[in-house]
């Protein structure tokens, strides 16, 4: 009886731990979104959201302006780059619940100091 209760409790605790890990979100989004998962999860809670989730609040033209670089490096702008222009989907480089490196780092050694992995 006692052993059974302990095992059950441990099981529930580990499930709770998994739950907590699964909903780690960025500090800057906690303030705005809080615990409203559906704010972003437009394809259902268990699926990746579409990019429309990001574009509800962020404007790609504004972002391209904010991350613009000097003439020599202008195409290294992550939001308006040489290969994809402004069409690179947000989630190709940004992940909410996990770490993620910029797509560019697959081939280039550019520095993106403001990118939050």
């Amino acid at each position: 009886m006692k052993t059974l209760k302990i095992m059950l409790a441990l099981g529930m605790l580990s499930l709770a731990s998994l739950s907590l890990q699964a909903v780690e979100i960025r500090d800057y989004h906690k303030d705005v979104i809080g615990k409203n998962c559906k704010s972003c999860h437009d394809n259902g809670i268990k699926q990746f959201p579409s990019d429309q989730a990001c574009l509800q609040c962020h404007d790609v033209d504004d972002l391209a302006e904010q991350t613009a670089r000097s003439e020599e490096d202008k195409w290294q702008n992550p939001h308006n780059n040489l290969h994809y222009g402004k069409e690179l989907p947000c989630q190709e480089c940004h992940s909410e619940h996990e770490t993620k490196k910029p797509l560019c780092s697959n081939c280039h050694t550019f520095k993106y100091d403001k990118h939050k992995e």
Binding site: Y84, E87, Q91, L103
Partner: peptide, 9 residues
């Protein structure tokens, strides 16, 4: 997610 495949790079 992105269009263009190898052609883009």
């Amino acid at each position: 997610l992105q269009f263009g495949g190898n052609s883009a790079i």
